[in-house]
Amino acid sequence: MPILAGMGKMNKISGFLWLLLLAAPAMAQSDVDAYPLSNAKRILFLGNSITYAGDYITFFESFYITQYPTSKAEVINAGLPSETVSGLSEPNHADGAFPRPCLFSRLNSVLKKTKPDVVFACYGMNDGIYLPFDEARFAAYKTGMERLRSELKAVGVKRVIFLTPPVHDDSEKGLGGYNLVLDQYARWLLEQRETQGWEVIDLHFPMRTYLKERREADPAFRLANDGVHPGEEGHWLMAKTLISYFNPTVNQSPSREAYLSSTPSMGELYGLVSKRQAIMKDAWLTYTGHERPGMKKGLAIKEAKKQYRKIEREIRNLHK
């Protein structure tokens, strides 16, 4: 709200609340002002299987390379399928094969070995355990997110950016099923942005609006065939929202295909980044360690970094 436009209402708002309203946007921008994304050395993504799938991260890294061509920042995908920040799990998760892993069982190792200065974190989808809203589960999620931010700040991460959980696309109940839980989780994160100065990018509600509009025109339309894991279009919506936070002109790209053809080399760049991300995400998970059975064993980190540098040379040759 512009200050002059609000002066006439000041007598209706307590002095404390007025100062809070003015201070919240400034707090939310503090990390941005103190540490521009262009200064990053290592950018870490934490999350569950949606992050591990990583297509939205591939788009982000492709954007980052073109936006900051002189930067040599490494974008690291450390997403782990089934993971939560709440520490909760269904009694019979994965047909009883294993409980959901909790981020905090591996976070210290991940931070020690990746040494990030910027961290994106996307949690919530698994934290409600696919059950109706419950205050105890909600409290566990909030506690986990607060702990995550505190631990990242404690080790010197310059910029912590939370992503609200993607939409849940229920085959029978649509947006009126488990997505109602995610609505609450996303709203809480956005409240932290306004009241505590957290940096939060909202993926959830833009995806919710898009899905609702498409479903009204075509009731069979889906963003996630299993309700949870977005397909290409869903990952593009996530990427578009994420990238446009840093460069609003990306919102002018009407589709994934249009973005990939927006410059002569973008499609090729995306392909190289995708290939590199596929190698590195498994290498980093293996190197940093985790408690989730059934994951692919990655290359030894030394060998993976050789592959990284080889593809890096190909990427740099695109811009000569």
Rank of each mutant, 00 (worst) to 15 (best):
A5L: 07
G8W: 06
K9D: 15
A23H: 10
A24M: 08
L37C: 06
N39R: 15
S49N: 10
G54A: 08
D55K: 15
Y56H: 15
I57T: 09
F59P: 04
F60P: 14
S62Y: 02
I65K: 11
P69W: 04
S71M: 06
K72Y: 02
G79D: 04
T84V: 13
D95K: 12
G96Y: 01
S105P: 00
K113W: 06
K115R: 15
V118R: 07
F133I: 12
D134A: 13
D134N: 15
E135W: 04
M145W: 08
V155P: 03
G156C: 11
V157Q: 09
R159L: 02
V167N: 00
V167A: 00
S171C: 04
N179P: 05
L182R: 02
D183N: 13
E194M: 13
Y210G: 02
P219A: 09
A220S: 14
A224D: 10
D226S: 00
E232Q: 12
G234K: 06
W236H: 13
A239Y: 11
S244C: 04
Y245S: 14
P248T: 02
Q252T: 11
Q252V: 01
S265A: 09
M266K: 07
G271A: 11
K275P: 02
R276G: 12
K281Q: 11
K281M: 12
G298V: 11
L299D: 09
Q307H: 12
I311K: 08
E314N: 09
E314W: 01
I315T: 01
R316C: 03
K320F: 10
